[in-house]
């Protein structure tokens, strides 16, 4: 967890971690691609994999989070959980050194997000090296004490 006091601190933190893959409301999905394509495009482009292979990888990740129902939906048809999962998996499949989840309260406005995040990250364990959550200090009481 990285606790923030204001947006300037948040921006400084993001800038200090240039290698991190950001999961943020400011980085939307490609609107004309489905969730599956949005995730698969990363290995397809970066590793020059055939689409079928990249899509299998993306599908396996969606299946681990029980979200295969949204695989063929595009961004405007997604609810906040599906959109968040798509963004998270797009970052996870990249296998960056750090995944940075930026202000989950904005990404998941209709969900009690601390337990949701904890369970999603637990399910994906082994797929990423390090994950940090950027949240404001006033949201700290929402998280269970460690």
């Amino acid at each position: 967890m990285i606790w923030l006091n204001d947006s300037a601190e948040r921006e400084a933190m993001i800038e200090s971690l240039p290698a991190a893959a950001l999961v943020s409301v400011e980085l939307p999905l490609r609107a004309n691609l489905s969730v599956l394509e949005n995730i698969a495009i990363v290995p397809q482009y970066r590793q020059n994999l055939p689409f079928e292979v990249a899509a299998d990888q993306a599908w396996a990740l969606l299946a681990r989070l029980n979200q295969t129902d949204c695989a063929f939906k595009r961004d405007p048809s997604l609810n906040c959980v599906e959109r968040f999962v798509a963004k998270l998996l797009r970052a996870v499949i990249l296998r960056p050194p750090i995944i940075l989840i930026d202000r989950p309260a904005i990404l998941l406005p209709d969900v009690c997000y601390p337990p949701f995040l904890a369970s999603a990250l637990q399910v994906l364990e082994g797929e990423y090296e390090d994950c940090r959550i950027l949240d404001y200090v006033w949201n700290a009481p929402l998280y269970a004490p460690r």
């Binding site: 893959a21 950001l22 400011e26 980085l27 939307p28 999905l29 490609r30 609107a31 004309n32 495009i41 990363v42 482009y45 970066r46 797009r90 970052a91 990249l94």
Partner: peptide, 25 residues
Amino acid sequence: TEVALMNINNEIRALEDVGVDPMRF
């Protein structure tokens, strides 16, 4: 229209952030 909306919605930066070069892709 598509590129203007991509630009306005920040989709281009989102692609760059996951290592996909928008010029090439």
